[in-house]
């Protein structure tokens, strides 16, 4: 019994260490549109493959649509992802070469449109972006070529979730 009591004392002994990242943080990131990925969460995800896989499972469970990795990715960047109900296209801006349009087309106008897009690449922080309102089944974002969202979407090995 001494051992049990002592282990309890040791386990609950207050220590002045930084707050630890756990599943609650994953859930908040995956569900709170206003919460970007905190640096400590990004660091924990980069360090812990199991935690990263938990995030993917969580997004998988809560997303309304998931685009798998682009099959047999070519050597060039991915410019289009086709799904049953959605399509994502990257179209360079003619007016401004440093910018690009991210266009999400919705095939089923009866379904509520997605409000968030997540792009996850193995070993890198997941990127989350709030989507503007859809017009006639199309959501359009004008982004910088070098923005994290565009960079991630151009990676054929990235998984994309809409929710």
């Amino acid at each position: 019994m001494f051992e049990a009591l002592d282990m309890i004392d040791t386990a609950i002994e207050p220590v002045a260490t930084p707050r630890r990242v756990g599943f609650s943080d994953l859930y908040t990131f995956a569900n709170d549109p206003d919460r970007d990925m905190a640096p400590e969460l990004a660091e924990a995800l980069a360090r812990d493959e199991a935690l990263e896989a938990d995030l993917i499972r969580l997004l998988d469970r809560t997303a309304i649509y998931r685009f798998p990795k682009v099959a047999a990715a070519s050597s060039g960047p991915a410019l289009r992802r086709d799904g049953d109900l959605y399509r994502i296209t990257l179209r360079p801006s003619r007016a401004e070469p440093t910018q690009i349009y991210v266009i999400i087309e919705l095939a089923d106008l009866e379904m509520p449109p997605p409000a968030l897009i997540y792009v996850c690449r193995s070993g890198r922080p997941c990127h989350k972006h709030q989507l503007p309102v859809a017009h006639d089944g199309t959501i359009q974002i004008l982004a910088d070529l070098g923005s994290p969202l565009v960079e991630a979407l151009r990676d054929g090995q990235a998984e994309v979730y809409l929710r």
């Binding site: 609950i12 220590v15 260490t17 707050r19 630890r20 990242v21 756990g22 943080d25």
Partner: peptide
């Protein structure tokens, strides 16, 4: 245990 205690 601390991760649980730190959960917010």
């Amino acid at each position: 245990f601390r991760t649980v205690a730190d959960a917010e």
